[in-house]
């Protein structure tokens, strides 16, 4: 794909995502996964998880962060620029129009009903995105346990309204990854030393 065409595809895809994603954050994440990992295959499941980890642990809306990151990964600065622009343009236009007749918009019954339906559909999109990503991951005991534990923890956090940011859960996972690497590293070092003796 030529550079210009790819920039255009990035812009258009994120414009589409920005236009149809109701319910914020993770709904958008689910749709980005469907578009870029499942359909376009521009990102592997691992790369998508990395994008998300970074998007979640840096300031700013997750969807804006993901768009910037994916755009940059694909096509550098301009890729990032056009992806982010595409993502926010629809809501910019829609919200500007709504701001002109805010009070009347609130009274539209059918908008509310459509939104009830969308919430049910979006919950399927999010659940299937998470499960699909996990199925592509290598099946190690750590992966399975960390996956189940963090899912359970998040549900508990929201059910019991605990004040615990998901950024910490991500950092704990990263810490465990680092620790297991360090243990392996030290073990190898001592083995080498033992071998030399």
């Amino acid at each position: 794909m030529s550079k210009l065409k790819e920039l255009f595809v990035l812009f258009l895809t994120f414009f589409k995502i920005g236009l149809i994603t109701f319910g914020g954050g993770y709904a958008m994440v689910a749709i980005i996964e469907r578009e870029f990992t499942e359909r376009k295959k521009w990102l592997s499941a691992e790369e998508f998880a990395d994008v998300l980890a970074i998007a979640e642990s840096t300031p700013g809306p997750i969807s804006v962060n993901s768009a910037t990151f994916i755009g940059y990964k694909r096509r550098g600065f301009w890729g990032a620029f056009f992806s982010t622009l595409g993502l926010i343009l629809p809501s910019l236009i829609i919200i500007f129009v709504i701001s002109l007749f805010f009070d009347r918009f609130m009274e539209l019954e059918y908008v509310k009903y459509a939104f009830y339906g969308i919430r049910a559909g979006v919950s399927f999109l999010i659940l299937s995105a998470g499960i699909r990503l996990f199925l592509k991951l290598k099946k190690t005991p750590y992966n399975t346990i960390a996956f189940i534990l963090s899912a359970t923890l998040l549900v508990a956090i929201s059910l019991f309204s605990w004040n615990f940011s998901s950024v910490f859960i991500i950092l704990i996972g990263g810490g465990i990854g680092l620790l297991s690497w360090l243990i392996g590293f030290i073990r190898n070092k001592t083995k080498e030393k033992g071998g030399r003796k």
Binding site: A49, A53, L127, A151
Partner: peptide
């Protein structure tokens, strides 16, 4: 270490 956690968070 982070990857399965992020996927778990989505499912959660």
């Amino acid at each position: 270490g982070v990857r399965p956690v992020v996927m778990g968070l989505i499912v959660g």
